[in-house]
Structures are given as structure tokens and as C-alpha cells.
Amino acid sequence: MPKRTALIMATLFAVNPALAADPHREHVHASPYAGEKSHEIKSLSQADVDELLRGGGWGLAKAAELNGMPGPSHVLDMASELSLSAEQVERTRKIRDAMRREAKTIGERFVAKEAALETRFRAGDIAEPELKTRVAEIESIRAELRTAHLSAHIEMTRVLSAEQVRRYATLRGYR
């Protein structure tokens, strides 16, 4: 071994003795999921379930939100800063309420399908064809849910002026 390489290795081992440890010793491979074993539905946290059942956004409208299409709930939260007219407030409430009703209904279906998948995995005998069918159903529902949220953002562009959209982006920290 060249002298320079030996010197570098000796320095590294002195700074971090773990580097010199037996490479064949047992390593710990703790999962980031370790604390989630108690979740009723392993693929969803309780916060996820709560968000889905109340018709919340669950981050599904980022494509719209981050590309200049405001969300109705946030618009209502900022009504005074955006100088919304009474008509705009009313139209925004209607969009938000319709979106939440639809998202709540779809979210309930989504959670139920995830719970059913969880039950099958707990049983330990789920087979590939059933798995594919169940996952396809869940993803189809997720697509409906995402569409419901994204559609509300698109509708909001018909309610707000260009200046209000710019102000929204500034208030949300996007500009």
C-alpha cells in the first residue's frame, strides 16, 4: 500500500473509528416505517385519513397551485388581502363547498378501499391477480380525487382577476 494511502486511511480511522470496525459485523437497518406498524391502515397515517375524510386537499393540487391557479380554500382565507368582491366570495364558497363535498365522498371510498387492501395483507394470502385489481381500483379513485381538487383550482381562475392571482402567489410565497 502506498505510503500516502496508508496515511489517509490512518487519519480516517483516527477521526472515525467505526471505519476500522469489522466489516462483517451485524448492521442495523432500521426502517423509517418502524413507528407506523400501529396504523390501522398501514399505507395511511391518521392525519392522512382525517384529511381524506374531511375532503381536504392532501397535496393533490400542487400542479395547479404552484403554476398560478389558486385554491378556493386559500382564496377565502385571504379574501380581504385579495380584495374580493361579495360576488367573488360567494362564487369561491360555492366552488370550495362543491369541491369538498365531492372530495369527501371520494375520500371515503379511497380510505375504504385502502382498508380493504390492508385487511387482505393482514390475512397474508393475497395473490397477484387480486392485488392488481385492488391497486388499480385504489389508483382510479385517487385519480378522481385529484381531478376534483385540480378542477376547483381551474375554476378559480375564472373568478379572480390577473392582479388577484398575482397577489395570491405573493401571499403564498411563490413570488
Rank of each mutant, 00 (worst) to 15 (best):
K3T: 03
R4C: 04
T5S: 08
T5P: 07
T5V: 15
L7E: 14
L7P: 04
I8T: 03
L12D: 07
A14M: 05
A14S: 07
V15G: 06
L19F: 02
D22N: 02
P23K: 05
P23R: 06
H29M: 12
A30D: 09
S31G: 05
S31Q: 03
P32W: 02
Y33P: 02
A34T: 11
E36Y: 06
K37W: 13
K42L: 13
K42V: 11
L44T: 03
S45V: 05
Q46H: 06
A47N: 10
E51D: 15
L53Y: 01
G56F: 03
G57K: 12
G57V: 09
L60D: 08
L60P: 11
A61V: 00
A61E: 04
K62M: 14
L66P: 03
N67F: 04
G68P: 00
M69L: 08
M69A: 00
P70I: 00
G71F: 08
P72Y: 00
H74F: 13
L76T: 13
D77W: 10
D77E: 13
M78G: 00
A79I: 14
A79N: 15
A79P: 15
A79Q: 15
S80R: 15
E81Q: 09
E81G: 05
S83F: 11
L84H: 02
S85N: 05
Q88K: 06
Q88R: 08
R91V: 06
K94M: 12
I95V: 14
R96N: 14
A98D: 13
A98T: 11
M99H: 10
R100E: 12
A103Y: 11
K104D: 07
K104F: 04
K104H: 12
T105L: 12
T105P: 13
E108K: 10
F110N: 03
F110R: 02
V111S: 02
E114F: 10
E114V: 11
A116G: 15
T119A: 04
R120M: 09
R120V: 12
R122T: 12
R122Y: 07
R122A: 07
A123T: 14
G124V: 02
D125C: 00
I126G: 07
E128I: 13
K132D: 00
T133R: 10
V135S: 14
E139Q: 10
I141D: 09
A143M: 06
H149G: 11
L150I: 08
S151Q: 15
S151A: 14
A152Y: 00
H153W: 06
H153P: 01
R158Q: 14
S161Y: 11
A162M: 08
E163L: 07
Q164L: 06
Q164A: 04
Q164P: 05
R167Q: 05
Y168V: 03
Y168D: 01
L171Y: 01
R172F: 04
R172A: 01
Y174E: 10
